[in-house]
Design a protein around this nucleic acid. Structure first.
Lengths: 119, 119
DNA sequence: CAGAATCCGGCCAGATACTG
DNA sequence: CAGTATCTGGCCGGATTCTG
């Protein structure tokens, strides 16, 4: 018997977790961090179009979920590194699979859309 | 050399595909259809809290992307079935991995959040 | 450099009503 | 049953400004 997707759970609803996973910026950040720790500014440069606000919010929520660890080096100017936690790494590899899928099928999807829109 | 995540592509930007993948309702629908074809009303019942509008929009865009096939049986009342396409099945299995991850780590995430919010 | 705070406009999701 | 059409309010995300 499959679990109902919208079902509640004592401590944490399944969908709450999926929402995080499904968040646009989170997916991109997790993928990048899969390559190794990155500084705040590195992430900002690597992710085209993300605003400071959204990068900060995204990193905070990932940290809150125990997927990303934040390390501050109090030099001047300050340096902040972000790295995946062990659990974060397991999610990142799932996401890597998704991104690989997107890369493999982007042309198929584009063609499908073109055909659909034409009719 | 890794591809820049925000980079453009001649026919279809990678992020466009990821946005679809990352869409809350799409993920749930793709997962359900992984079990086999379903009628419109079955999907609506299985996904707690989705509105008619969002279910229809989600199914339309999945169909447009070539991930879901829509079959109308013009009886009275009409019957409409939705099934994954071959490519849709490959995505659905990726998503199944994601959902399995969420299930395995929901407690960890919940605990992390609780600890973060307490401090 | 790595944010925090504030303001604001657009869009999207939900609710509602109607239909072949 | 399986939609379509329309309206509306909330909230999300971008832009801007300021700081240790």
């Amino acid at each position: 018997m499959r679990e109902t997707i919208g079902e509640d759970h004592p401590t944490c609803r399944l969908r709450d977790v999926l929402d995080r996973v499904g968040d646009k910026w989170s997916v991109l950040v997790m993928d990048l961090l899969g390559d190794g720790p990155k500084r705040y500014s590195e992430l900002q440069r690597a992710i085209a179009g993300i605003s400071q606000r959204m990068l900060t919010l995204t990193l905070r929520s990932l940290e809150r979920d125990g997927l990303v660890e934040r390390t501050v080096t109090p030099t001047s100017p300050p340096r902040v590194d972000y790295a995946l936690t062990p659990v974060g790494r397991t999610l990142s590899s799932q996401i890597a699979g998704l991104i690989a899928w997107a890369r493999q099928h982007r042309d198929y999807v584009a063609a499908s859309r073109a055909r659909y829109d034409a009719s």
